[in-house]
């Protein structure tokens, strides 16, 4: 292959006027080791093209990807676990911090007076209620006795 033809091809190559075959010819030319000194500077360019063309996926590519997917999945699982744990923790704390509802209710339902003033007042109210009812009962008794009296007098008469 003479260098004049190569130079001519190169000129066309830079102007994008070469065919696919001609470009292939150029690439092949530049793979040889003994190049004319004025053309050696273009070797890198064409070597790079060949190199890139031979580039393919490694045999361990699939395995690598699958492993990455797995680790990502694992990471997600951990995140879910973390969130679940925080929810449990917060719920647990809330449960502990809550005042015992049942106890509260009992306190309301079974009132034990612990203030003397209140005890005095409540007792007074209860005594008044009892007193009123005793008097109602007595009044009824007296009324009934009067009725009985009038009944006996009518019977005697």
């Amino acid at each position: 292959m003479n260098s004049d033809r190569i130079k001519n091809l190169l000129d066309n190559y830079w102007l994008c006027n070469t065919s696919v075959q001609e470009e292939e010819e150029l690439r092949q030319f530049f793979t040889q080791d003994n190049l004319p000194a004025d053309l050696i500077k273009y070797k890198t360019w064409f070597d790079y093209q060949i190199e890139e063309r031979n580039c393919s996926l490694g045999s361990d590519f699939n395995a690598n990807i699958i492993e990455k997917i797995k680790t990502k999945h694992h990471f997600r699982m951990r995140r879910i676990l973390n969130i679940a744990a925080s929810i449990i923790l917060v719920t647990g704390l809330w449960y502990v911090m809550q005042p015992n509802a049942a106890q509260k209710q009992v306190a309301l339902k079974d009132e034990i007076i612990t203030s003397p003033e209140e005890a005095y007042k409540e007792t007074k109210d209860v005594l008044l209620l009892i007193s009123q009812n005793i008097n109602v009962g007595e009044d009824m008794l007296i009324e009934n006795m009067k009725k009985m009296e009038s009944l006996t007098t009518t019977i005697i008469e």
Binding site: I113, A119, E122, T123
Partner: peptide, 17 residues
């Protein structure tokens, strides 16, 4: 039941009022 209770201790204290 609802209850209200005043015990001996409270009557003791109420008596001292």
């Amino acid at each position: 039941f609802k209850t209200m209770t005043i015990g001996p201790k409270m009557f003791e204290l109420a008596a001292s009022l």
